[in-house]
Design a binder for these strands. Structure first.
Length: 462
DNA sequence: AAAAAAG
């Protein structure tokens, strides 16, 4: 079975081929023909399954006939986070290169100017997060009465984030005769209700969860103590880590941990929801460009983000919810490459770990405290500044730079191009070569590894 | 309990 068997146009097949994909994933095989027949669709699938292309590809073909009118987008895609919205936009850019579709990315955290201009001209594809979409609608900048195709992506996450009332409000402004596609990793009752209300005789498809069963990810649990976590983490980072995303549960922890790792000489960046959008994207770019090899992140980066060649994921904190664990570790082991996921745990995390093992149906390798060589202190004065705060700091602490006296051996500011002081492994790290991997699933977006395309720069950095 | 998203 190839893409050519799914009923897609020749121009589109060429774009797919140029991207290096040869074989559709299961969700693409099932979804694409049915979307092309203008059927409503409920798909139980999560990122990493090729879900994005399963709606982007047929939509490009459907929309390539006809043209957009001012302020009346012809299709609408709702995404829970700004980064995911940007990622979907890049997919349209890549696969739509032979189709001349116009599009706009409507996300918060960026100025209104460029978005207003694009909307005024008229767009075939509107990709949005709910907040900014409602905002623009309220300002009278959009008429939703011309939307023929609606995609609700990551519906269960939208629910978690409290977007369901927004989605209902948006749906009620759309023409009742339209095609609606709903994607969700799970189908909790409120999402089922939403589907019953806004979809018409949908086709149901379901594909297996990928990350939990991903044999390419080696998982480990390493015991530590609340006070010893940073030492343990640094020791592990020095064990042959090419690059790593480190997840923490709180934004304050992300900030503090990133600052601490920086003081210890790591080439580190951070990403969380309190940062400005341009900054978030810049940190992602630096990580992708290998200017930094450690990215400390909140769960804003846990789902869906496709960054090629991430060798390690660390959980500095055991995630609150076992689903989040699956999403976090799924940032590695992508596109056929192997990866390692290491979770630090303390005595208090026993129950959360039980749940994770139950969900993933695996017994994860444990390294208990007693079995560890004591983490060698690596900085000259670790104790004073380096214990996690028992209380998350609030308010001004975010912008308060560390006083110099608090920072042992602070590395010099690295200018772009200068080799950052990356701590390297004593044992040679095993390079992860995604290029040698089997054919990429279409959702594993290699484009996240390149520079931000011009159309995104305009809207996101402008 | 946390984070995310509209300022």
């Amino acid at each position: 079975m190839s893409f050519a068997d799914l009923g897609l146009s020749d121009e589109l097949l060429r774009a797919v081929e140029d991207s290096g994909y040869t074989e559709p994933t299961p969700v693409q095989r099932q979804a694409i023909p049915s979307v092309l027949m203008n059927k409503d669709l409920i798909a139980i699938a999560q990122t990493g399954t090729g879900k994005t292309a399963s709606f982007v590809l047929p939509m490009i073909d459907i929309l390539s006939h006809g043209r957009a009118r001012a302020r009346m987008p012809r299709s609408l895609i709702l995404e829970p986070t700004r980064e995911l919205a940007a990622q979907v936009a890049e997919n349209f850019e890549k696969y739509g290169k032979n189709s001349k579709l116009s599009m706009a990315l409507l996300i918060g955290g960026v100025g209104f100017g460029d978005q207003d201009k694009a909307l005024e001209k008229g767009v075939d594809v509107l990709i949005a997060t709910p907040g900014r979409l409602m905002d623009q609608f309220g300002r009278g900048k959009i008429l939703l009465s011309g939307v023929d195709i609606l995609v609700i992506d990551e519906a269960d996450r939208m629910l978690d984030m409290g977007f369901v009332p927004d989605i209902e409000a948006i749906c009620s402004k759309l023409p009742p005769r339209r095609q609606t596609l709903l994607f969700s990793a799970t189908m909790p009752p409120p999402i089922k209700k939403l589907a019953d209300r806004f979809l018409t005789e949908p086709r149901h498809i379901e594909v297996a969860r990928p990350a939990a069963a991903n044999a390419l990810i080696t998982q480990r649990l390493v015991e530590s103590t609340v006070r010893g976590k940073r030492d343990t983490l640094r020791a592990l980072l020095r064990e042959g880590v090419k690059n790593a995303i480190i997840f923490a549960n709180r934004k304050t922890t992300v900030r503090d941990l990133a600052a601490s790792l920086k003081r210890h000489g790591f080439a580190v960046g951070q990403i969380h929801g309190d940062m400005e959008q341009a900054e978030r994207l810049r940190e992602l770019d630096r990580f992708k460009a290998d200017e930094i090899n450690v990215l400390v992140a909140s769960d804003v980066a846990a789902r869906g983000l496709d960054i090629k060649g991430v060798s390690h994921v660390f959980n500095f904190d055991v995630p609150w919810h076992p689903d989040d664990y699956v999403h976090r570790i799924g940032r590695t082991g992508r596109a056929g490459a192997t990866g390692t996921a290491i979770t630090l745990y303390t005595a208090e995390d026993a129950e959360a770990i039980d749940q994770i093992e139950k969900l993933t149906k695996t017994n994860i390798d444990r390294t208990p405290l007693s079995g560890q060589a004591p983490a060698a202190p690596s900085g000259p004065s670790d104790e004073a500044d380096d214990q996690p705060r028992s209380q998350p700091r609030r308010g001004r602490s975010r912008s308060a730079a560390k006083p110099a006296g608090d920072a042992p051996a602070k590395p010099r500011v690295q200018t772009a191009g200068a080799a950052p002081a990356k701590p390297r492994a004593q044992t040679a790290p095993e390079p992860v070569r995604a290029e040698q991997a089997p054919p990429l699933p279409v959702d594993a977006n290699p484009e996240w590894n390149g520079p931000v395309p011009a159309f995104l720069q305009v809207r996101l950095h402008g």
